[in-house]
Structures are given as C-alpha cells and as structure tokens.
Design a protein around this nucleic acid. Structure first.
Length: 255
DNA sequence: ATGGTGGGTTCCCCA
C-alpha cells in the first residue's frame, strides 16, 4: 500500500498535473495540502473518475487540505480541538483500512520573531496535543503533510545560509520534536541517514535548478506503522516541467 | 539588505 503527501499549491491550478500524476502512480492514499479552494470548488469528478474517494476541508484563497483514497474513507474529522468556524483550515484526519491518517498543513511563520511565527509555534503545540491523543487511540497512525520545518541540518542544502532562519530555527525544530514526542518517528530516517531528500524548492530563487531545497514534508508514524514501512521516495520528477508546485510529492509504502 | 516567482484575489496577501 502506498501513501503520498503533496502540497499542491492550488488544486485547481494543478488539476491537470494532479490527474496525470494519480494515473501514473495510483497511490492508495493521498494527503493534499494548500488546495486553496472551497469544498465545492474541488475538481471532484475527474478525480472520482480515476477511482478515488475524496474528503476535503477547503477554504477560500488560502490553506485547505484533502484526503483521497482508492478504498473507503471513514471517521473523517475536520480541524483540531480548539478550532472554530473562523479557524484556518489546515488539518483533516480519517481512517483508511486499519490506519489512521492526520493530514496537516503547518503554519509557514513568515519570519523568525514575527506575529505569524508566534502563531506557528502556538499552532504546532496544539497539533502536538491533538496528534498524541490520536496516537493513543489508534495503534497505526500516520501524521503527514507540509510541516514547514526541517528536523536538522541534513534537511537543508545550505545550513549556514539558513541558520536560525524560518523553517530552520531552533524553536521550530523543538516544536517539531514535541509533535513527535514519544509517539511518532520520522519514517524517512528508517531508510537513510544521509543529507538530502529535499521536498521543497523556492520558486523565487530558482532553487530547483541546483537542488537548493529543504526537507519540510514529512511522514511521522507510530511504532506499529514504522514497523510496516517498506519504501520511501521523493517524486522529484513532479517538481520539474510546466507549472509545477513548489513542493514535490513524497511517497511512503506500508505493508 | 533586498528581492526574486507563483497562486488567488481584487487594487494586495501569502508562501
């Protein structure tokens, strides 16, 4: 069974690419972030025609997340405890088969020390509480998405240039470790201890040419899911070509 | 130190 996470940076702008990618890879479960549209604007029909069930938690203009699966999607939960009607829509959770999925689009944080940065750290603390509760309830849980944080310098093409910058600062990394807690492991590290496997490259600096990327899209998995992890890869091909997202899809295969 | 590009919206915000 293969699970993919992808920050699509607008599902409508990426629709053609998404459909071709679904057809080519046929992932069993897909967690999308930044769909940037209302639920009713999601291109349901072409995705359903490829055999996917769809659950969305959309928002106008910004944010928005969705789960697609080739089998039944059950017990869908939108948002987190503490959210209200006006909250940014960044989390959707559901069960597919015997695995619980939490699909998260973590706050970007703009700049270290900014208001958005403070909000990011608060938001990550809330995600930690929520994710720990889910992990206590479901033995096999996969917490995936765009975390907008690197774990350590191996996730950064140029650690000195990014030292204590947004996506790389110590408080953000501490917050990411607190989300892991004693419950979750970084599934990628089951497969390699090497630097690289970047998942995001800045449009503005043309970072993809030269592979000046960061690894900020992650699979955090409970021990039961970690045991079942068989393969991990970043679909760099999807970052190339016409009108790509700034993120590549990331795959995890589970037994 | 700044700005570069890209998506969505609307006379600018967010990443």
């Amino acid at each position: 069974m293969r699970v993919a996470t992808w920050n699509v940076n607008s599902v409508r702008a990426r629709c053609e690419r998404l459909l071709a990618w679904l057809e080519a890879h046929r992932p069993d479960v897909v967690c999308l972030q930044e769909i940037k549209c209302l639920d009713e604007q999601f291109p349901r029909e072409p995705v359903e025609d490829l055999g996917y069930n769809i659950e969305t938690f959309g928002q106008k203009t910004y944010n928005g997340v969705a789960i697609l699966a080739r089998t039944r999607i059950e017990d869908v939960v939108r948002g987190m405890p503490g959210d209200d009607e006006s909250s940014q829509r960044r989390v959707i959770a559901a069960t597919v088969g015997d695995v619980r999925y939490i699909n998260a689009y973590v706050v970007n944080g703009e700049k270290v020390g900014s208001e958005k940065y403070a909000y990011k750290l608060e938001w990550m603390a809330r995600l930690a509480d929520y994710a720990h509760g889910v992990a206590r309830e479901y033995e096999a849980t996969v917490l995936t998405g765009d975390f907008n944080v690197t774990f350590d310098d191996r996730d950064v093409h140029d650690p000195e240039a990014w030292r204590e910058k947004i996506l790389c600062s110590t408080p953000e990394r501490d917050a990411l470790r607190r989300i892991q807690g004693e419950y979750y492991r970084d599934a990628m590290r089951k497969f390699t201890e090497e630097k690289g496997a970047y998942t995001w490259w800045d449009f503005r600096t043309g970072a993809f040419r030269g592979d000046r990327g960061l690894r900020i899209d992650h699979f955090l998995v409970t021990p039961a899911a970690h045991e079942r992890a068989r393969e991990f890869f970043v679909d760099r091909e999807e970052r190339a070509g016409e009108k790509p997202s700034d993120h590549a899809p990331v795959f995890l295969a589970l037994d």
